[in-house]
Design a protein around this nucleic acid. Structure first.
Lengths: 235, 235
DNA sequence: TATTTAGCATTGGTAATACCAATAAATTTT
DNA sequence: AAAATTTATTGGTATTACCAATGCTAAATA
């Protein structure tokens, strides 16, 4: 007998719950930042076990749509902080130090400087010089030019014309710079350091202008080494 | 009183299990297609509840690293058949080429090799040599040792002892794999290249054994340059 | 009274156990 | 020998209990 029987839904219950909640989020009935019903209530409302609800919610958490907060509840994440960004959490968990961050930047950015020296357009150079100028202004106004500083390094990333490098820097921007930002205040407290740093940045730009990869890489190396030294001495 | 007590950070148990299993996959100790231990056995072996193991595994399933098959077991997915591989997708969107990937790896991995030369433990070296040996076996059997090759580079990442670098490479894993797979499949057209590659990997290990950062970095540089040259000549 | 402290309620995290459901292999039956 | 059945294994769901973190509230204290 070949009667086309209705192939019953072989779906896992937890997946059905998952779909329902996700729908609520997509439809905007669960807005960003809002708290979702507690697991216990959801379980009763849907007449399934808390275990099942839990699996569904966990899936949404892993996908970055929801966020667990023990003792408070589960909340809808804001879309702009969603894509692949367990960064902040990872930062806490991984015990990453400023030193660790600088080590990685040494490899990544020296290479980027060398690439930029081969490919940077006039526009790229202008962006970098603008950022450098903004740092000067900020610092002279008594503020710290952290924003401008990161802008400089992002401009460098774009100047490599390498989409993979840009992708990395975009996605790990927080991870690579957040630690620096927090501690940059100390570095900028000593005015004599500021001149050093400005000069180092300037040297990087000069080397890129001259289209000298070796020189650019070395300039970046000296810059990062300087920062490394600073943090080594104060800890 | 302002004694800076060390604020304990109790990671979730399920996340610890998650990390362990994921590391087994990255290191190649759990190969693609292979079945992982049943949840009940894992729970007993790790001395945690099955619930916890379940949560950890579920997370890996959602991330696409594992695959559930009711009545059979849980299996390691083949990296290139992962649905919605975020990095691979990004590679399409960003129009990234193998050449772009190799450029970034040049910066990241040369630096990693230098760090590993300063910090690699015996265990790290063993992992690298095991991976290298597995590549040999795979190649001699007519297959291409893409997974073993990836495991080698992950082992190098772990050997740096730098949590930021490890974190980057973990999230870079798919990208790395895709790149390596394409590398090898094309390099395989000229078998004499395989010997070159094996020797280059061997030189990297040797340099790390000798705790010579410069040499390790240079060995890695030569390796990547070799692959770059190959792709330059065939396009 | 103002502040601190302690306790309580809420909510996610883990555990233990039992049973359901699907699959594959072994066994029995035809 | 082939087919049907049973059995063992393994993931899926349910239930219950308790732990752990957070925030609120009321009691205790200065």
């Amino acid at each position: 007998m070949a009667i086309a029987l209705q192939p019953i839904k072989p779906k896992k219950i937890s997946d059905q719950v998952f779909e329902q909640i996700r729908e609520l989020i997509f439809r905007g009935q669960l807005k960003a930042g809002q708290q979702v019903m507690p697991e216990r209530e959801l379980a009763e409302a849907l007449d399934v076990s808390r275990t099942t609800v839990r699996n569904a919610i966990n899936k949404l958490v892993v996908l970055g749509l929801l966020e667990h907060k023990q003792g408070q509840g589960t909340f809808v994440r804001f879309p702009d902080t969603r894509p692949g960004n367990p960064v902040a959490a990872a930062m806490e968990v991984e015990e990453a130090t400023i030193s660790d961050l600088l080590e990685v930047r040494m490899g990544l950015e020296c290479n980027a400087a060398a690439l930029a020296a081969q490919r940077a357009s006039e526009r790229d150079l202008q962006f970098m010089e603008t950022s450098l100028e903004e740092i000067r202004i900020e610092v002279n106004s008594g503020r710290l030019g952290t924003e401008a500083d990161t802008a400089f390094h992002m401009a460098l990333a774009y100047a490599t014309k390498n989409p993979v490098h840009v992708y990395l820097m975009k996605n790990f921007y927080d991870f690579l710079f957040v630690g620096i930002k927090k501690n940059l205040s100390h570095l900028y407290e000593a005015p004599e350091n500021i001149d050093q740093i400005l000069r180092q940045h300037s040297e990087i730009i000069t080397a890129i202008k001259q289209k000298d990869p070796q020189k650019a890489s070395m300039a970046m190396r000296r810059h990062i080494q300087f920062v490394q030294e600073f943090f080594r001495n104060r800890s």
